[in-house]
Amino acid sequence: MITTSGLTKVYRSRGREVTALDGVDLHVREGEVYGVIGQSGAGKSSLIRCINLLERPTSGTVTVAGQDLTALAGRGPRAGKELRRARSRIGMVFQHFNLLSSRTVQDNVELPLEILGVSGRQRSRRALELLDLVGLADKARAYPAQLSGGQKQRVGIARALAGDPKVLLSDEATSALDPETTRSILQLLRDLNRQLGLTVLLITHEMDVVKSICDSAALMDKGRIVESGTVSELLATPGSQLAAALFPVGGEASAEDRTVIDVTFHGEAATQPVISQLSRTYNVDVSILGAAVDTVGGLQVGRMRIELPGRYEDNVVPVGFLREQGLQIDVVEPEKAPRAKSPLVKEGVK
């Protein structure tokens, strides 16, 4: 649905060059929720603005719903008619909502329809429909200033859907909201994705967002995509930074001669009592250093860091047993442990 290839954006100011995007290849499939995560300055914002060409990419192409937007852009700095048409079919939601304070909620939702030249009566019918969809039918006559942050974002979402888009871009839509409201907005996005078959590309710095609604995710750093894939693929990838950040498990070995391993459960294995089997079968004492269990995309996924007595050489058989159970095993080397303290993980945990 959304494909970028070799997307590069270089900002030049006073002779200095800053590369915000460095050859980004992104592929978002139709009907999925795709999360791009990264720290501030990683290039997420530039990426999402290049998708609807609010920012002109320096090079590379952007294709949305089979239409090459970069070809429509023309050479001048102003957006031509074709590009504006294409933009009206891409919804966008903003971190700071960007609602017009001089218009009522309903008039805000009608704005994209005014731009599309829809007649007055149809506009108001569609706007009320959309407000109903986001659960704000009773606020049509209110002004944005009278709404809470979560309600404002609902209006922002209703507005983004007015042009009947197939694609929704979300620019840190929940970053200005409290955790409770964040959950309800994410739930709304998820519902819209399911009900309307909407493809959602969201950028965020919050791991929880990816965890709760994304089908696929990409990790960005310094203008490049470091890792990408479906969430279940990522979790199954040994040593994946995103997987580690999604399920951060801490805990250091309690003594020198211990083996620390990370066990990742998904699918069937998640419901099996493997640890107690391990303990009984091999008569080993298992200590749990840390664990996290969550449901991602309807599947139970968990990660656990356990400690076995003795060095790795002494534990080859029990580890082999765990692998046989269909679990993903990463042996944590003592010097590898600090990886869990990378800035990304900290941000994710926060």
Binding site: R84, R87, I90, M92, F94, N98, R103
Partner: peptide
């Protein structure tokens, strides 16, 4: 707020729309 201008551009508005619907009313 420049964000409002950006929002209208993202909806497919042209410069005249931005002036008429955003800059002057706001």
């Amino acid at each position: 707020d420049a964000g409002l201008v950006e929002a209208v551009q993202a909806m497919g508005g042209n410069t005249w729309t931005v002036v008429r619907k955003v800059l002057v009313p706001e």
